[in-house]
Write a protein that binds this DNA or RNA. Structure first.
Lengths: 241, 241
DNA sequence: CGAAATCTGATTGTCTGACATATTGATAGA
DNA sequence: TCTATCAATATGTCAGACAATCAGATTTCG
């Protein structure tokens, strides 16, 4: 019920104070904070403690620190905040399934929203990722960049920063897996085909079709994943014989 | 394309090294790290730099630091990681709308999944939040706790850690707004009624009905919000006269 | 007068060494 | 066996110092 007061670290108290001031609007976007020495005097603590606090705030995407320029409050950018989360773990397969499901659910909805809200600029950006992917096919690279960008553009087209941020974060977390999938024979070509169809659905504002296409898009990937994991098992079994 | 090498801070390099070792599986859950002095010797840097790195890792939910016990790798807990994100900003109304939309989209899907996957334990937990809310009505408190818990239990019932984590994070971010809404005359009683209906739908595994009820649940809140903002405007206009 | 080179000051990045404090585990006593 | 005291350990915090570097002022030269 009550939190331990005395044991709270100085650096944590500083973090809290600064965050409170931001919420209260007393510190505003892009504002420059006093330098470390001055802060330490104002707070009445050592510079080391101030630094620890600032490191935390930086890792959270709240402030930005420039080498010899000082500390600034970040412009509010959800993407930055969300990208501050990473998943520094060996993602086990269960976690992968969860991630995958979450992404599928969100992105299908994203597609529907994009159909309603995408403007010409969004469509242009998406179109560009299609040509990018074609170039990847021609050049023979993984095409992951175009893939990620396509989905991000679609998410941006929802005009919902939160959703775009979450989708982006999930998408990049699964980057390694997506690279594997795209490397599956013939997948990249098929993927481009699917992206194109989704793009057209959004252009035509056909949200039902778009949702269906996305479902197919994801189930295609799921199939490849099972194929890949079976292959893997097969190989390892063969290796044991 | 390439990242600046030389300018990377020592503390950031330490963070990266530790995270890499976690991903590679060389550091495992709950493992205790060497103490700060030892770490500083192993890395060949000062203790201050090690501390800065550890503070960052702690704020990310990667490690846990006990006052005089040492530093331990956290058991992987997505909720902890996600709860490490906070939104220390004055949420403007636009951001609120985005949050609200994101939550609605996710939670409707959550309800559908919960219908398929909720077990007896999940149902029991949800039922408990219903009685909690009844008690809040009787006692006359805000009922926010029961409200948040209900939605969290539903999210947990999806058995998808990622989704549960996201829903939780969104839900708590909007806590203040939810308190306001629940304070609207008659809302808490109505809210409990809606929760009960949703609970029953999940119990009966009727996902279509559940989705519909959730849509209603959210649209009811939306209505109150407009009512509240109109009221607010009306008052301020009156005050100007 | 304008542009390039230089210099200087401000600020972060890092280190060293020290002390305070609290928790843990061991040891001694009832 | 349980309790109480004590010492060792690790974190929390501080002070002070120096290096590195970037930005802006200053100077110099065309």
């Amino acid at each position: 019920m009550f939190q331990n007061i005395k044991s709270m670290r100085v650096s944590d108290q500083i973090v809290n104070q600064i965050q409170s001031q931001i919420v209260e609007g007393r510190l505003t976007e892009r504002q420059k904070l006093p330098n470390e020495t001055e802060l330490s005097q104002q707070f009445g603590v050592s510079r080391a403690s101030v630094r620890e606090a600032l490191m935390i705030l930086e890792s959270k995407g709240v402030v930005e620190r420039r080498k010899n320029g000082g500390t600034f409050l970040c412009k509010y950018c959800l993407e930055k905040i969300l990208s501050a989360i990473d998943f520094p773990r060996k993602l086990d397969s269960e976690m992968f399934d969860d991630l995958y499901e979450a992404r599928e659910i969100l992105e299908i909805k994203v597609g529907e929203l994009a159909c309603q809200r995408a403007d010409v600029l969004d469509l242009m950006k998406m179109e560009k990722t299609l040509t990018m992917m074609q170039e990847s096919i021609d050049r023979g690279d993984s095409g992951i960049k175009a893939d990620i960008l396509f989905h991000q553009c679609m998410a941006m087209a929802t005009k919902n920063q939160i959703i775009a941020g979450i989708v982006r974060s999930l998408g990049t977390t699964m980057k390694d897996m997506r690279i594997q999938t795209l490397a599956y024979p013939g997948r990249l070509v098929q993927c481009l085909k699917e992206h194109r169809a989704i793009y057209n659905a959004i252009k035509e504002k056909d949200s039902r079709k778009c949702a269906e296409l996305l479902r197919q898009h994801f189930s295609a990937v799921a199939q490849i994943r099972t194929a890949l994991s079976n292959e893997g098992n097969g190989r390892s079994r063969a290796a044991n014989e």
